[in-house]
Design a protein around this nucleic acid. Structure first.
Length: 373
DNA sequence: AAATCGGGGTG
DNA sequence: CACCCAGATTT
């Protein structure tokens, strides 16, 4: 045997020790077939009934997948139904007014998704004959579509055999293999994705992928104790056989949360409320907000700000303190209810009616506690 | 690789 | 209160 081969074997051995700890990760052909059938049979019997499943057209699958990014099914359902009803086709989406689009998205979060949808729809109209492209690479070029969403669209809407690996699937596959590596790490993710590629059937890929999602939602759950006894594929699961299902997967990386103190002004003039449009980039971009300022301001400081802009303050009253948690930071907000007189309009402020607040302007959830009063 | 980007449900 | 969710994009 050549020296090259011996070195290669040593290299492979080291790799397998470092990158593959205990791990299952080796399935026989018969076993894969059994796994697929067990999962698909369970899905056909116990899968969820969802609005985007009754008619899995490419458009509906796409919209649902974008809405479902980091967002629970129960949250998405009413947004999805309203969206499809208001904007039923790709062409309609490409031509939808931005305010209407953002209003439909109000409260759903990750607002970039809405603007990505419209941009992608315009590209589909311009370059793809008004349809979704049917291949992975073209889908990936569209804004808002990454590897997971491209896989989901291709498998569910076009029945192409391709994985759609989301948080559910990472968790399930990690447990099946008793993967003890940190599933946040790229190397571990790569390993898990390769495993899904082995397990996915050449037909029924859409059902297979959705079956994994439903398994993750109802059986192999993320928080709390997984319901292993009800699991259709428990006999294939190394974490189950070793009593590790509750412990796995391993996730490191606890990010430090920051806190910002903010003063929010609810300013009324002639029964109209002052709103301000946020920047086109960054947090809550393009949405409408109550005028607000860094740090906690006193009544006197607020009055001075308004006077400097040409208003006469006729009343000012402190409002209840509100906390709002984003995924990466917290806002602590104090508020003042203020009435003003004066004709000088700040160019960046818009004076709106109660009706318009409800029907036109998209306002982030953080400010809603100040509006209900 | 790590940070950014929402909001709500859950233990 | 911390963690997670049918992730993608930017830094």
């Amino acid at each position: 045997m050549s020296l090259f081969f011996r070195l290669l074997m040593i290299f492979v051995d080291i790799e397998s020790v470092e990158i593959r700890p205990l791990i299952r990760y080796n399935f026989g052909m018969d076993e894969i077939k059994e796994f697929q059938e067990a999962l698909l049979n369970w899905y056909r019997k116990s899968g969820r009934v969802l609005p985007w499943r009754s008619d899995p057209s490419p458009y509906k699958v796409w919209i649902s997948e974008i809405m479902l990014q980091q967002t629970r099914v129960d949250t998405v359902i009413p947004y999805f139904n309203r969206f499809i009803s208001e904007i039923p086709t790709i062409k309609d989406l490409a031509e939808t007014d931005d305010e209407k689009l953002y209003k439909l998205w109000q409260g759903l979060g990750y607002y970039r998704r809405a603007s990505h949808l419209k941009k992608a729809a315009q590209i589909m109209v311009d370059q793809y004959n008004g349809r979704l492209p049917e291949n992975f690479n073209d889908l990936l070029t569209l804004p808002g579509i990454g590897a997971y969403t491209a896989g989901a669209i291709l498998s569910i809407a076009f029945n192409i055999s391709i994985p759609a690996v989301d948080g559910n699937v990472f968790r399930i596959i990690a447990r099946i293999n008793a993967e003890t590596g940190d599933i946040q790490k790229a190397s571990v993710k790569k390993r898990l994705e390769a495993c899904v590629k082995e397990l996915i059937p050449s037909t029924d890929a859409g059902d297979f992928n959705q079956a994994l999602m439903d398994l993750g939602a109802n059986i192999c759950i993320p928080n709390g104790i997984p319901k292993c006894e009800e699991c259709p594929v428990k006999n294939f699961c190394k974490a189950y056989s070793e009593g590790l299902a509750y412990t796995l997967p391993v996730k490191g990386n606890k990010a430090v949360r920051k806190t910002q103190e903010i003063t929010v002004l609810k300013i009324l003039r002639d029964n109209r409320l002052a709103l301000r449009k946020r920047e086109e980039k960054g947090l809550l971009s393009n949405l409408w907000e109550l005028p607000n300022y860094q740090s906690f301001l006193t009544e006197e400081q607020c009055i001075k700000i308004l006077q400097n802009n040409g208003f006469k303050v006729t009343s000012i009253m402190p409002m209840e303190r509100v906390k709002h948690a984003f995924s990466h930071m917290d806002w602590i907000m104090i508020g003042y209810l203020i009435t003003v007189e004066g004709n000088e309009d700040l160019s960046s402020w818009t004076w709106v009616t109660r009706e318009e607040i409800l029907n036109v302007y998209s306002i982030p959830s953080a400010f809603l506690p100040f509006l209900s009063v």
